[in-house]
Write a protein that binds this DNA or RNA. Structure first.
Lengths: 226, 226
DNA sequence: TTCATAGTTCGATGCTAGCCGAAGCATATA
DNA sequence: TATATGCTTCGGCTAGCATCGAACTATGAA
């Protein structure tokens, strides 16, 4: 009758404020130690430890031991994408933890979503790739067209390893600030890395903001015109 | 302390087993009454009531009063897609066990809803009346057009007493097997009575089934063509 | 009118789970 | 070795909340 309330378990896992804070912190894509996450959530290490083992057992996190540290990260892209979806719905319904802060506009403009680009620029990139026919909607997902392959390789992205991986190359991820989709998957991740390498953008320490340089921003807007 | 949407609140809302059961039931797309949802979750109506008001306040549900029933449905598509995302992430072995509408095909086809016609034929009648311009959506309700008045009177329905009554003449009523609207109100009631009088249909004792005779069914389908 | 049904509100109860202090491991450095 | 740090386990405390019985409201049926 009441066989394993799956989503209830998942919901309760995310439903605790301390755990939600940790997950949000991990959404930046960086792996963090247990102590850092405890500080992030504002709780003692003991409490954080139980939370972390619960989330790991629940499949939300993966952990890597390194010396006497334990680094935690989101288990996979799907977890990150679920968190973004929830943020989108929460924002839409007006459930905000605090009023919008000064960092808010920068966050809305460009930020990391786990390991790919989100925000206004992320959505623009997705729109541009679709408009130019580089990406195309496929059954239940996104596909890369031949033109798209050429474009990616022109960006010095080696597609071969991406295709051999079991990880989906193109996925759409709902943007919580724009209510539109942006590009996730290994290609989305590779593109963001490329932006860093090109010097177009860099991460702001301690936040999810991706800061584009003036030249980088111009290059980006040219590359992903609408 | 932290900026951004409150996913913990959303998570805790979904994180309770009883609430998750109700939400999963509603994921079928059909609107269900509070009692049905209580049975679905295996809890008493009192408990269900508090859960439902919480979920409504949290923006997950919308409710529609229908006589002494309250039909609950997911607030919008975003809620549904979030639930599906969560089900996808959770081990997907849990099968949906929604106790949906009537299993009896005859009940789905034509039955009484209090005093008016529901089921496939009820929905068809509503669709036809709207398509022909006999009924028109008004603010928060339904209105009878001049053409509609003529049609009703051609059906030997005396509109005068209906208009003098405080009871609304035209109301839309959510069909529990079709999840579409059919016609309620005093006009809906009068029409069903007229079908009985014409010998088109009769009630099956001890059930809510409305049995149309072969001739009656043909006449009905002609009268309410699409 | 009176009765029946759908649903809500109130109050009390009991269980769960988050929380922290203290102690125990584990891994580093000296 | 000794000592410090990162993290976990244990025990007990407490707050929150899901739950239900009982009473109440609202609507429909007879």
């Amino acid at each position: 009758m009441k066989e394993g309330p799956d989503i209830a378990f998942l919901g309760s896992l995310i439903g605790d404020p301390a755990r939600a804070n940790m997950l949000t912190a991990l959404l930046s894509g960086k792996a963090l130690t247990a102590s850092e996450l405890a500080a992030e959530a504002g709780i003692t290490p003991q409490t954080a430890s139980t939370h972390l083992s619960k989330m790991e057992a629940g499949g939300l996190l993966q952990q890597r031991r390194q010396g006497r540290h334990r680094y935690f990260a989101l288990a996979d892209d799907d977890v990150g994408s679920l968190l973004e979806t929830m943020m989108g719905l929460a924002a839409k319904k007006g459930h905000l933890r605090t009023r919008t802060g000064p960092k808010d506009p920068a966050l809305r403009y460009a930020r990391v979503c786990y390991n790919h680009l989100a925000g206004d620029l992320g959505v623009r990139m997705m729109d541009s790739l679709l408009a130019k026919g580089f990406l195309t909607p496929e059954n239940e997902g996104l596909g890369l067209t031949d033109d798209g392959r050429a474009f990616a390789e022109g960006f010095s992205i080696d597609l071969e390893p991406l295709e051999k991986s079991r990880r989906p190359m193109c996925k759409s991820c709902l943007d919580w600030s724009n209510r539109r989709s942006h590009l996730a998957g290994s290609l989305g991740s590779a593109l963001l890395t490329r932006f860093y390498d090109l010097g177009w953008a860099r991460r702001i320490e301690g936040s999810r903001i991706v800061a584009f340089s003036p030249r980088g921003e111009k290059a980006f807007l040219d590359a992903f015109a609408l």
